[in-house]
Amino acid sequence: MASTLLPTLLPPVSRAVAFLLRTPPKPFRSHHPLFRSLPASASSPSTPPTYHSLVTMASAGIPARRDLLMLGIETSCDDTAAAVVRGDGEILSQAIASQSDLLVKWGGVAPKMAEEAHALAIDQVVQKALDDANVSETDLSAVAVTIGPGLSLCLRVGVHKARKIAKVFGLPIVGVHHMEAHALVSRLVNKDLDYPFLALLISGGHNLLVLAQNLGEYVQLGTTIDDAIGEAYDKSARWLGLDIRKGGGPALEELALEGDPNSIKFTVPMRQQKDCNFSYAGLKTQVRLAIESRNLCTDDIPISSATEEDRQLRANIAASFQRIAVLHLEDRCQRAVEWALKMKPSIKNFVVLLLTSMLGPA
């Protein structure tokens, strides 16, 4: 079956609107029934379960607060994860199966390999989450599952598992937008965090700046138009011949500590663009050209075998890249704060969520 990305819940902001800021970006609600876009398969139940969103759960008759007991399933990228959470935010259990060995073998996330790993792990991970919480499927109020954005092949594994549980035990399904969940997890940790708040979401495959006005009501101020910062870190780390078994981001950051961040004059992306979008494709190209122009044989000589001079050159490239990558984040965040204050003068909190170890898709 061909891999197709599921639609996301975050519509793009008009570039003209973003530039002029005469009309604020239009708010939207997050209860799109994305499950209906999934193609049927032999393993799908003949009668689909009832689908809900975070916003419509109350109207569906699902119990509120502590009486709510949710099983959450996440398979959007390279980790198979499940958790059992009460409605008041208490996490009863969580289980994760990592694909770190596959990341090293394939130099990143290989969607087909990741799908197969999810399929092998999903039953065991879900059962462990239930066992650790000392509950069974009959105790659940609903099943929540990530429906996008993410790798389609991987998402389907979690969705099919959720559909199966919902069918057998007569449970509703709550479709969760991956990035919405990340934005809202801050309220799980800090229960005093009130709406509205501004959120910067940073991951291997996505960068988003979102004004959260209420549950299910968001204004997307900026998004990734080509490559996210995690992808840029990952590719740069590989081009520099680093050991990325623990992630491209940590490896590059460690090497950057040895370098001079001002030694190479990389250009900050999109300084002339008056919006809040992110672009790291050009910075990746600058890194590649810097490596080539200095005749660094990073493909044949890993960092562990590099000469002292070679290692210093690589460290300078890493440090210079990291400085510009962060400056780009700062530029977009500064503009987003200005926009958010114009739209919601009462806003007081800016939440930053680092979602992965910055090892982007292959």
Rank of each mutant, 00 (worst) to 15 (best):
D194A: 15
K274N: 12
V84Y: 04
L171A: 04
P269R: 05
L171F: 06
S236H: 10
G249W: 03
I147V: 14
A133M: 07
L34D: 05
L69K: 08
F35C: 05
G230Q: 03
S14W: 11
A237L: 01
L54R: 02
I202N: 00
E292R: 13
A290C: 11
P27A: 11
S59M: 11
A181G: 15
N207H: 04
N277C: 10
L341E: 08
I347W: 00
A117T: 07
T285V: 13
S93F: 10
S263L: 09
L184K: 13
H32M: 09
D79N: 13
C297I: 05
P7A: 14
R15I: 04
V176E: 03
D123W: 09
R22S: 06
G247D: 04
V109I: 15
H52M: 02
L327K: 08
Q220C: 13
A281S: 15
F19T: 14
L240I: 06
K161R: 14
R187P: 03
R238E: 01
R22Q: 12
L209F: 07
Y280M: 01
K167F: 13
F19Y: 11
L353Y: 04
L242R: 07
D300Q: 12
H178A: 03
L221D: 00
L5M: 09
L215W: 12
H206F: 01
A318T: 02
P261S: 12
P49G: 11
I303F: 12
K105R: 13
Y233R: 10
V126W: 03
R22D: 07
H206T: 02
K161I: 04
K284M: 08
S304T: 15
P49D: 12
K112I: 10
S37K: 09
